[in-house]
């Protein structure tokens, strides 16, 4: 479903935010270090300390949206998914998540955030959230935002 340049963009390590909702349809956001793209599934590495509500929502209903944004250009892609499951990261994912987190910090340094401040973003003890992809959408601000890209 996702390959080529799009896969590369998603796995480069940009700024990543997730959205979930509870049973009353109250939305929430969570903070993530980045995304791993599988064939028809994705894994997002979520920072649990700052995303408690969203993780609880995911356990309850498994519905997720993930937006990956390159701060310098605002280029953004949104992933929609269902049947999300929470699990520990594999050793390989630990390495990948560490690289993605470092790259995300670098991405905000590029737009003027002080390196010592970027270094304080908490990506310790990440949780892997694996979900089935239901859609991939353009999310860059502009007239095409919301159109399906894959």
């Amino acid at each position: 479903m996702i390959d080529g340049e799009l896969k590369e963009f998603l796995q480069t390590g940009h700024v990543c935010v997730i959205a979930t909702r509870d049973k009353k349809l109250r939305p929430d956001w969570g903070h993530a270090a980045g995304v791993r793209v599988l064939k028809s599934r994705c894994v997002v590495f979520v920072a649990p300390d700052s995303s408690n509500r969203s993780l609880a929502n995911l356990r309850a209903n498994g519905l997720i949206a993930v937006v990956v944004t390159e701060p310098l250009t605002h280029r953004s892609i949104q992933l929609k998914g269902e049947r999300a499951k929470l699990r520990d990261l594999t050793p390989a994912e630990h390495k990948l998540a560490k690289r993605l987190a470092q790259s995300a910090r670098q991405a905000v340094i590029e737009v003027g955030i002080a390196p010592r401040v970027a270094a304080t973003w908490n990506f310790d003890a990440l949780v892997a959230v694996e979900f089935e992809l239901t859609g991939v959408f353009e999310a860059t601000p502009g007239p095409k935002a919301g159109t399906e890209v894959a």
Partner: peptide, 21 residues
């Protein structure tokens, strides 16, 4: 200075997240 983000969901419960200028 730092973009804000907004999480929403439709009546079917599908979440969405976007940046706000």
């Amino acid at each position: 200075v730092v973009p804000a983000a907004i999480a929403t969901c439709d009546s079917a419960g599908v979440p969405n997240v976007a940046y706000v200028s």
